[in-house]
């Protein structure tokens, strides 16, 4: 299921360039860049309003409140200049990770199925979320053991994953539920914390791996595995 890395990117490997998009209202862009840097790759800033991917090998859509999220979360961001390019590139295998608001943007962009709605308890809640990595066959989870337990901070008001039953069944049977909550914090259907597209190169999740990269500041360092995964994925593309 591993994504196809475009030919021109196959010589990248761990010196990879990982783009981090800044929308107006993005809040975790610096943190995502730090996670990339700590993993030994080069973070590259991408600006919402510029149709330029700057030769990046992978893209992270960070958390925040893009454009204020006054409509539906992520609903405006999907129409930005850079998202058009990212959507096209994702279809040809560019690894894309959406965290929190970034996950919402991916759903709004129809790169991922389902939607994220108001938490069942109707409040914004900030808690470390324990999750199980359900599949290591994605560009962003291959460094984890399948079934591994990880802890990332979850902090959102609208993170309850919903989809129709058929979609949920399809996600389950195709192994596209990527992260599953062990203590569901928001009422997400089937405890789903994160999902991927069919090819496995596009992953979205609500909890924040970029806030679990240093023992000093996070509940764990489990989040480093997400960037490590995409670097391994790019590396494999380089040797294959």
């Amino acid at each position: 299921m591993s994504g196809v890395v475009p030919e021109e990117r196959r010589d990248r490997g761990t010196g990879a360039r990982v783009g981090v998009v800044t929308f107006p209202g993005s809040l975790d862009d610096r943190d995502a860049a730090r996670a990339v840097r700590l993993s030994g790759a080069e973070p590259v800033s991408l600006w919402h309003d510029e149709a330029a991917l700057r030769s990046v090998d992978a893209v992270i859509l960070p958390g925040g409140f893009s454009y204020g999220d006054y409509l539906r979360c992520g609903a405006i961001a999907r129409f930005s200049e850079v998202m058009g390019l990212i959507a096209d590139a994702a279809k040809s295998g560019l690894p894309v990770l959406g965290v929190c608001n970034g996950f919402q943007v991916l759903c709004e962009s129809h790169l991922l199925p389902g939607a994220l709605v108001r938490n069942a308890h109707l409040r914004y809640r900030n808690r470390p979320a324990r999750m199980r990595v359900e599949t290591a066959k994605t560009a962003w989870t291959r460094a984890y053991g399948e079934g591994a337990e990880v802890v990332f901070p979850a902090k959102h008001g609208e993170g309850r994953y919903v989809a129709d039953e058929a979609t949920l069944d399809e996600l389950e049977s195709a192994g596209r539920v990527v992260f599953r909550y062990l203590d569901n914090p928001n009422g997400a259907m089937r405890d789903i914390a994160g999902v991927c597209n069919e090819a496995g190169n596009v992953v979205g999740l609500m909890p924040h791996p970029e806030h679990a990269v240093e023992a000093l500041t996070g509940p764990s360092t489990d989040g480093l595995g997400v960037v490590a995964s995409v670097l391994a994925h790019l590396n494999e593309g380089a040797v294959r």
Binding site: G63, N126, K155, H208, H211, V213, T217, G218
Partner: peptide, 14 residues
């Protein structure tokens, strides 16, 4: 009260 507040954005909260 406190879990309604983000405490980790910026990644510098020790």
């Amino acid at each position: 009260v406190t879990e309604q507040y983000d405490s980790s954005v910026f990644g510098n909260t020790v």
